[in-house]
Design a binder for these strands. Structure first.
Lengths: 245, 245
DNA sequence: GAGTGGTCTAGACCACTTC
DNA sequence: AAGTGGTCTAGACCACTCA
């Protein structure tokens, strides 16, 4: 038994995903009907529907009553969704760069103000771990980030976590499940201090993102305010319309 | 029969959505189990699951095997998702403004270059309808937009469509279904000409969005390059993690 | 009329959590 | 042991599309 117990619907799902992603089926191509698939895999129609439905919400396919199921993407040129979340991902403009260097500029405990309390589901004056870090590729400054974490959730966290990947720490050391995030994106002029870090001039444009990240139990564990170097970053998003009628 | 034929699962879905949105159930609260709901509505468990699943995909709830189903949002303070698409919406910073004025600056036919051909699924030198418009609230400039439409899809379109809502025209006059869009967001410095329109200085930051919009048949019908006045706009996005395990 | 997807049933067995 | 959600079955009737 080297095979784990993968549900049948996931097998079907992956099989279809594969022929879409490798370009065997192209945009607009017809996918086998539910009846055909249930015959092929020897499963009930409801099981096929579970696979199909997942592909539908992920935007791989679209369906028409009476007509069939069609491939939505042309070879999915756009995104492997390299990020952690579906539907939204930051993309480096220049594919030859990548973050390989985290410098922690500040690491201290502060007290919660009203806005932080609201975002992090805390009370005013609760303790917060505050981290300020700069991400670079070699000597190219890419991201300036301020993180706010509830101290009681991370009583023993140390500075060196933030020199590596904080999310990896949360997921692999603490074994928490990251579930959701809400972000707001703006264009902002660089302040003098961030401009210095970015080796740019004060007033130059940057992408500014404020973000709250949640675990699968609904708890907010991280609030961040981030500047992305506009020379190297864009954000990409694919949105599928909800059904209306 | 004043009631339309609404599927039962949608009734269940809406009932649950209601008690979440009006705050009766708060973040972390337990929702009735599948067995309870199927008893209450006198339907099979699979039907309840369809309702629950939709709420899950939309991020209203989260589930734990063996424990139950819980409310994910605290009163859904964040978004009615006022836009057309789920998961991503532009939000005015100042809620007292709104676009009430479209000025068409340019309306002409041009020929397709390579990039446009790729984005709009056309051939080089195919005809394109090009529109340049400025959206304002009174005399506050909000959005500067360049639209590129395949001429063969809109052979008889007129300028006045763009003084109102182009999307309303597509959906309500042509009765096409808008299904998907892909966007890329950057921070850009205003060019001299756009700065003039925005009554700002050259070099000030703006949000720049390039976007392709698709119909439900997979056809791209619109490519746009848009500057959003950074003083009045931010973009908001809620992202739910795909299952990984 | 044949084929498609949309809705729905009344069961079943399993894995996981809580007591 | 009892309750929860996760997977799955083998049917059914319907509305829609296309030939």
């Amino acid at each position: 038994m080297s095979e784990k117990n993968i549900p049948i619907y996931q097998v079907i799902e992956n099989d279809i995903k594969k022929v879409i992603l490798d370009g065997t089926l192209k945009q607009g191509d017809l996918i086998p009907s539910e009846t055909e698939l249930s015959a092929k895999y020897n499963v009930s129609r409801m099981t096929v529907r579970q696979a199909i439905n997942n592909l539908l919400v992920d935007g791989f396919i679209y369906r028409h009553k009476g007509r069939g199921t069609f491939v939505a993407f042309n070879k999915m040129e756009m995104e492997k969704t390299s990020g952690r979340f579906s539907g939204f991902s930051s993309v480096m403009k220049d594919l030859n760069i990548e973050v390989n260097n985290n410098t922690v500029l500040e690491f201290k405990t502060i007290l919660c103000d009203e806005l932080l309390a609201k975002r992090l589901q805390l009370e005013v004056n609760d303790e917060i771990v505050f981290i300020e870090r700069l991400k670079e590729d070699g000597d190219i400054p890419l991201v300036y980030e301020r993180l706010y974490l509830p101290k009681k959730m991370f009583p023993d966290i140390t500075k060196d976590v933030f020199e590596k990947s904080f999310y990896d720490y949360v997921e692999n050391e603490l074994n928490w499940k990251i579930k959701r995030c809400t972000s707001a994106i703006e264009a902002r002029a660089l302040t003098k201090s961030v401009a210095n870090l970015f080796k740019q001039k004060e007033g130059e444009p940057a992408l500014y993102v404020s973000n709250v990240t949640y675990l699968d139990n609904g708890r907010a564990f991280e609030y961040s305010r981030t500047y992305y170097n506009a020379q190297y970053f864009r954000f990409r998003s694919t949105n599928t319309r909800k059904e209306v009628d």
